[in-house]
């Protein structure tokens, strides 16, 4: 079984990886992307995930572990394995605002309007959802970011039940730090 934490960048995927690690799960990560102001606790990323479109078999390194694979790259995971995907969901205005800040800090500000980006990301999420629905090898748990923050114990238990692993729910819930919930929208 390969556990994948997915979603759009800035949807809470790093937090979920930290929760899984705290709960006792082995995570597949490297230290290519260092902790920074956007993610003070680290990104928990695995750089080779970027290569999945060209080398999908790389995902086999995640067997028995949890790995972060953003939604775009999730489309490239090969068939013939069993996956459990925890898909993070967060309101698009919050995601876009958070991405804007990250882009500014990277010196790559984006001039495209949020209206256009919202439409594009909605199309993208629909494509991902349709793909997942047609993949019997992939089980999906959708996890709302704000709901997770509001009730970390309850949703940590949901994650434990979904993965059917002996995870430490209390340790997972302790990873939630509301001070890191920035870019809140009113929606």
């Amino acid at each position: 079984m390969i556990t994948i934490v997915s979603g759009l960048p800035r949807s809470g995927t790093s937090l979920l990886m930290q929760m899984l690690a705290a709960g006792g799960m082995t995570i597949l990560t490297d230290s290519e992307r260092k902790p920074d102001v956007d993610n003070p606790r680290g990104y928990c990323e695995w750089e080779p995930a970027k290569l999945l479109p060209r080398q999908p078999e790389l995902i086999d390194q995640a067997e028995g572990k949890a790995v972060k694979v953003i939604s775009q790259l999730l489309l490239s995971v090969p068939k013939g394995r069993d996956y459990k995907v925890i898909f993070m969901e967060r309101p698009l205005p919050e995601i876009l605002a958070s991405q804007d800040e990250m882009l500014r800090r990277r010196g790559k500000p984006d001039s495209v309007s949020h209206e256009s980006l919202t439409s594009a990301f909605k199309d993208h999420l629909t494509e991902v959802s349709t793909t997942l629905e047609n993949r019997p090898d992939i089980s999906v748990l959708r996890m709302g970011y704000r709901r997770l923050l509001n009730d970390p114990i309850r949703h940590s238990q949901s994650i434990k039940d979904f993965l059917a692993l002996d995870l430490n729910v209390e340790a997972m819930a302790r990873q939630v730090d509301l001070s890191l919930y920035r870019n809140r929208s009113s929606s």
């Binding site: 775009q72 990250m102 990277r106 439409s119 199309d123 629909t126």
Partner: peptide, 28 residues
């Protein structure tokens, strides 16, 4: 998405997403 044929804007949407994710450093 299931009922309607892919619209012409789909390719443009994909390009917007791709550029954004590249800028963020998440894809090649």
């Amino acid at each position: 998405d299931k009922v309607l044929p892919p619209d012409q804007g789909n390719a443009a949407s994909k390009e917007l997403v791709k550029k954004r994710l590249q800028g963020l450093g998440y894809i090649e």
